[in-house]
């Protein structure tokens, strides 16, 4: 089986700082990681490869530095890495991103063969849109399976897959055909640690690096800022609430503190007591 996984290098948002004066992101020193959700998809791809043979290609679009994430994916066990990088892609929104990625996947198929499954992450932690997966699927005409918790069956010969999909009120068991695009939900598997041999291979691997031209992306008006229908007009820090919490002085012991706290809650929000009394008695 040939499987493609789209990964994205993202800033570790736990460590992002906002400049207190200019309200802009201070990128300096913020480490980048593989988007954590993408790892569940990568692991699932590796499992399919291990079971049925074949190869896993990882693809990312980003600045040259994004090759670090690709190398990490290789160290985890992927077989090949492709970096799509070009200044034309700067400022892409999801629609422009899916255009470029879909074109790159076409080129990958020409170069390395038809892909049976394309995986993306459920969503990224920076863009956080969950749109890129569905967008790629639409552009490539792949069947779309998002929020998958399990690949129950996969038959490469018949080209069939059965998956369990997380829906709002339950789990859908869906049967569909390959080629398809799958996004895995978090916790659906445990991401492996590559063997020492993988890390050595990854450290040496040559990363296939394509510009827009290399990937035969001809219509540059569909890329980057130009190709993005959405316009980010304003980035700002959430307004701080003007008043701080009303602090309750702790009492001599926990019981006193509890009484003081409850009194404060019900004084400030008188309607709550009746509501809560009802709720507490299960009415």
């Amino acid at each position: 089986m040939k499987i493609l996984v789209c990964i994205k290098q993202v800033p570790d948002s736990a460590q992002i700082r906002v400049h207190p004066v200019t309200n802009t992101i201070m990128r300096q020193g913020v480490p980048t990681i593989i988007n954590p959700y993408d790892l569940f998809s990568l692991e699932e791809a590796l499992r399919l490869r291990d079971k049925f043979g074949g190869e896993v290609t990882v693809l990312t679009m980003g600045p040259p530095m994004a090759s670090e994430s690709l190398r990490k994916a290789l160290a985890i066990g992927a077989d090949r890495a492709v970096l799509l990088t070009d200044r034309f892609f700067a400022g892409s929104d999801t629609l422009a991103t899916t255009y470029a990625l879909a074109q790159a996947i076409r080129k990958i198929e020409q170069t390395f063969g038809k892909q049976d499954i394309v995986f993306t992450g459920k969503q990224t932690i920076d863009g956080d849109t969950a749109q890129v997966g569905p967008g790629i699927a639409k552009r490539l005409g792949l069947l779309q399976l998002t929020y998958i918790s399990k690949i129950a069956e996969c038959d490469p010969d018949k080209g069939e897959v059965v998956v369990e999909r997380r829906a709002e009120g339950g789990v859908q068991v869906l049967k569909t055909a390959m080629p398809c695009l799958i996004t895995m939900i978090e916790g659906s598997n445990d991401v492996r640690r590559g063997a020492l041999g993988d890390t050595l291979r990854a450290a040496r691997a040559e990363i296939v690096t394509w510009s827009a031209r290399d990937a035969e992306i001809e219509d540059l008006t569909k890329c980057g800022l130009k190709g993005s229908p959405t316009i980010v007009k304003k980035v700002f820090a959430p307004a701080p609430r003007s008043e701080k919490a009303a602090f309750i002085e702790p009492g001599k012991n926990a019981a006193e503190s509890a009484d003081a706290l409850i009194a404060a809650i019900f004084t400030r929000h008188p309607a709550l007591e009746a509501d809560m009394t009802k709720l507490a008695s299960g009415l």
Binding site: S13, N23, I25, P229, V232, V235, F236, A237
Partner: peptide, 15 residues
């Protein structure tokens, strides 16, 4: 929200 919630951004689809 963007960047893990540290910031907000306002987005338009003008055209």
């Amino acid at each position: 929200p963007t960047f893990g919630g540290s910031l907000l951004c306002t987005i338009y689809t003008l055209n």
